[in-house]
């Protein structure tokens, strides 16, 4: 009884302990042009589609949120290393510099297990609950593909995708009760969003149809396919 009372008093007196929350933005990696260059449906002419769109979103979030709100930027590292080797550029350095302009330091992950670990939260100041999660990267209706057409032509490595069958590794208790999630990948609204809501327990907005990053800024629904956003 005393312990329960002490806990209640602690929460009342130090509300910031449980008010800490986090906005998580995830950037997937680009394809290799040596795989994609001659395809009819070619991808990622520009290496930084998912970096620029994420940072454009940060700019928008900064206007709406206070300067003390925490934004965590998770970046799939291997994709940028391999694309950089292909084009003889240090893209990690470039994206770090761009992030610095927005007051962000990327936190890298190399596979889905590391991402799941980064998404494990308990509400402590070190691991605040996630109030908002957004994904920028390749996807289809069943899968987030961080390394699409990078290590293998036209596909993604098993350990570097989050398939709907993997969603049990993401706990709903890592999110605030009113957390909002958005996937800016293609086709997520056709199945991934619904499975996310069923398994993770939070709504996720996703695209029905393709999303287009080619104009810069936030991705838009591709024209001509009657696309829409859906839960």
């Amino acid at each position: 009884m005393n312990r329960r009372l002490a806990l209640a008093l602690l929460i009342v007196l130090c509300p910031e302990l449980s008010w800490a929350y986090d906005i998580v933005l995830i950037s997937g990696g680009p394809a290799l042009r040596s795989h994609e260059r001659f395809k009819v449906n070619t991808h990622d002419r520009y290496w930084g589609n998912f970096v620029d769109s994420t940072l454009a979103r940060v700019k928008e979030l900064r206007k709406e949120f206070g300067p003390d709100d925490k934004i965590t930027w998770l970046v799939f590292r291997p994709g940028y290393i391999r694309r950089g080797l292909e084009e003889k550029q240090d893209y990690l350095k470039i994206l770090e510099e761009r992030g610095h302009l927005h007051g962000l330091t990327p936190i890298y992950f190399d596979d889905k297990d590391q991402l799941f670990t980064l998404l494990q939260r308990n509400g402590s100041p070190e691991k605040p609950l996630i109030a908002r999660l957004e994904y920028y990267g390749h996807s289809n209706k069943k899968c987030w593909m961080f390394d699409y057409s990078n290590r293998v032509d036209g596909g993604a490595i098993e350990t570097q995708v989050v398939h709907v069958d993997d969603l049990e590794n993401i706990s709903g208790s890592s999110f605030t009760p009113d957390a909002k999630c958005v996937s800016y990948g293609c086709h997520s609204g056709e199945e991934f969003s619904q499975r996310w809501r069923m398994i993770v327990g939070r709504p996720m907005v996703g695209a029905v149809g393709k999303t287009d990053y080619s104009a810069g800024g936030l991705p838009k629904l591709s024209e001509g396919k009657g696309g829409s956003w859906a839960y």
């Binding site: 289809n140 899968c143 699409y148 290590r151 036209g154 596909g155 993604a156 490595i157 098993e158 350990t159």
Partner: peptide, 9 residues
């Protein structure tokens, strides 16, 4: 490990 084929899942 395997590769994920996104068209046919």
């Amino acid at each position: 490990y395997r590769a994920y084929e996104p068209q046919a899942d």
